[in-house]
Write a protein that binds this DNA or RNA. Sequence first.
DNA 1: GATGAATGAGCGTTCATTCAT
DNA 2: CATGAATGAACGCTCATTCAT
Lengths: 228, 228, 228, 228
Amino acid sequence: MSTFSEARNEPRWTRRKDARPEEITAAALELFVERGYAGTRLEDVAARAGVSKGTLYLYFANKAELFKAVVREGLVSPLSAVRELMGRHEGPMMELLRMVVYGWWERIGSTRISGIPKLVISEAGNFPEIAEFYLAEVVRPGTALIRAIVERGIASGEFRPLDSNEAVDLVFAPLMMIALWNHSLGAFEPRRADPRKLLDTHLDMLRRGLSAAPVQTGDAKDTGAPQS
Amino acid sequence: MSTFSEARNEPRWTRRKDARPEEITAAALELFVERGYAGTRLEDVAARAGVSKGTLYLYFANKAELFKAVVREGLVSPLSAVRELMGRHEGPMMELLRMVVYGWWERIGSTRISGIPKLVISEAGNFPEIAEFYLAEVVRPGTALIRAIVERGIASGEFRPLDSNEAVDLVFAPLMMIALWNHSLGAFEPRRADPRKLLDTHLDMLRRGLSAAPVQTGDAKDTGAPQS
Amino acid sequence: MSTFSEARNEPRWTRRKDARPEEITAAALELFVERGYAGTRLEDVAARAGVSKGTLYLYFANKAELFKAVVREGLVSPLSAVRELMGRHEGPMMELLRMVVYGWWERIGSTRISGIPKLVISEAGNFPEIAEFYLAEVVRPGTALIRAIVERGIASGEFRPLDSNEAVDLVFAPLMMIALWNHSLGAFEPRRADPRKLLDTHLDMLRRGLSAAPVQTGDAKDTGAPQS
Amino acid sequence: MSTFSEARNEPRWTRRKDARPEEITAAALELFVERGYAGTRLEDVAARAGVSKGTLYLYFANKAELFKAVVREGLVSPLSAVRELMGRHEGPMMELLRMVVYGWWERIGSTRISGIPKLVISEAGNFPEIAEFYLAEVVRPGTALIRAIVERGIASGEFRPLDSNEAVDLVFAPLMMIALWNHSLGAFEPRRADPRKLLDTHLDMLRRGLSAAPVQTGDAKDTGAPQS
DNA sequence: GATGAATGAGCGTTCATTCAT
DNA sequence: CATGAATGAACGCTCATTCAT
């Protein structure tokens, strides 16, 4: 009505139709991670998002859909960012692996998105749909990416010729462990080493473990080729 | 391989009456692992154990107590077996590490007990008591054991001097990953490599990663000392 | 056949604004008849009327008021038309009855107004106000009208002397049955006889049933007087 | 424990597993008829049946199944009773019709089962499944029965040759009207004629309407044949 | 006037727990 | 000891109603 109102940049009562879904999934992510799927009451999600119970249903058809949206949302851009990075990279694959691990920490490990793996692991049995979705959209593309790096390294002679599927699992395991720990027992064990230091050591171990150079150790002659 | 099984002395076929609680926890373990705590209905536990719903309450005060009993039961003995093994061991620590990893697979990884970690991780937030208990009874003793091995290896010059806490995490991570995978997404991804092969590769990577011998790799001069 | 339509004088195409309430009650009538009171969602009424949910509340205080308006609207005028017709009629009462029945079909039975009886019957228990209103405005005046016809016929010797209240019910029953059927099970039983043929047969049965002339039937001597 | 307890014929706490379903459907019938399907709260059904809300679900999977059970239960035996009666009958069909109408009043019209038609009419739109079920199990068998009677009468020359489908509707209409009235507006119009007298008059009208004998009425020559 | 996002009371349904037998 | 019918608190979801725009 007044000419002044036109200048407002932060109207107090904007219909927040577009911001709402993210506010809700953010609240839901926290609670799902804290309490599990079944343990999370939609009323609490609503309260934490600052809306009423009914509002949830304006944006998500039901609890399962909200859950799926939470999982989906947390994992779209991160993966494609890695993919892009890999396309551009030149130089040793070990260097790329390091960037991927650090990038994972920046974008996922150190954020609340890292709660999603725990969610999925916990609820896979009850939500086959989620399990399939996560496998198709996250696990398989993610492992394919790392496998490609490992295989490039093997092809170039940088890495020794080991089973690339196994290598992928060994690259991922500590990252998963960090994420799971931080969202479960970590809450009860306050003094913990800096995860970044652990990741550095992990990368250092990987460097040695993947290297094509032979390693002379106490109990076995290492030829650079994998065991049996 | 049969390293862990020597300590058991209990009669294998006690009277049915005494076996009831274990039949129940066995049924409960399966279901808790499959469906999580909240997703498991006591009626189904009863049905799978071949008893009536009411009978559950003759042995367990409530669902939470049953859950705790399931977790508690799956954990106690194996650790002491490892401790004993360690006391007896002579020779390279890498060899001991290998026995521990294989023993873990025999006694835990390949059995339904491997579902326990998933349970604990999933429900730690809802059952602080379980979390504390698991930390006190399993995590801290377990890591202490491995840390002792690593530190013995460092002291003897077999291993290079890295942070033993970090090393422990890196030793455990793939074992945890295998256990979690088998009880969650693994059910939806049929073709999977043999976990034992993965463990072999893991041990091979560890051997190289832990070795005191320097490793010449493409992007860094390795002196045997840990990074940074 | 067009007997009833003569009295209407209102302009047929008033301004849209004034038409709104009627568009809403028209939409509401359809839905209330299809789904019952509780089964009808105001959101659907709004959608069918082409307005927003909020707009409903500009015209009707709440769902119950809308419902009452729907019922009220479907009832008033036709009765006065019959009353008028009756005042003018000369000749046999059976002929008047026939006109009334045909008129009912024209103005009510074949239109969506015929859904009103179903609504009232279904919701009488929940809406005493509607029940009373319908009794006062429709049932009692309507039966009075028919009763007057029957009684005129009896007085003139055209009809035999039976209980006029009972006769009224027997005149109405098939009309009600047609209306109710068409708005309930009729939707699930596609092939159905033409209601007009049924009404003809009904009138034919009434003619015989009401006639003062004796009827010789197999199992009773008919004197024209009603049975005990 | 005591020898006395064996003599008890009315144990105070018998598990009433077999009586319960009928107690519940009886309570549900009352409430469904009073308040409609949606208007009936299961909590109230439970309370009226003297059980808890949860107990309902021991016997009926959900509200819709309870509803179907109510409908089913009220109309199985009555229909077969009529069928049986018809098989035995000898003599005029008009007599059989009279027995059917009286029987309907005894077994249905005067009992609370008469509330079912109203229920079905009200909810057919929301529960196609119920509508189909009622058509298949009640309406079609019931009309077939009456049609058979009418057609036998026509074949024997007792009735004039009219459309038997129409005749069936005209036979039923007043019965339906009585049932519906008693469960809707009837509650608000206390003084009402005895339905049995109305049924007598209805039968008397039918006798005249169906008779093969010609009837001389004021406005039409009646030849016994139906109108065009 | 008209909109539709937001609300929250209310109900159907589930399931851990109890207890008479 | 064992049973399983019964309970009722708790929660997901719906939808009539409100109100800032």
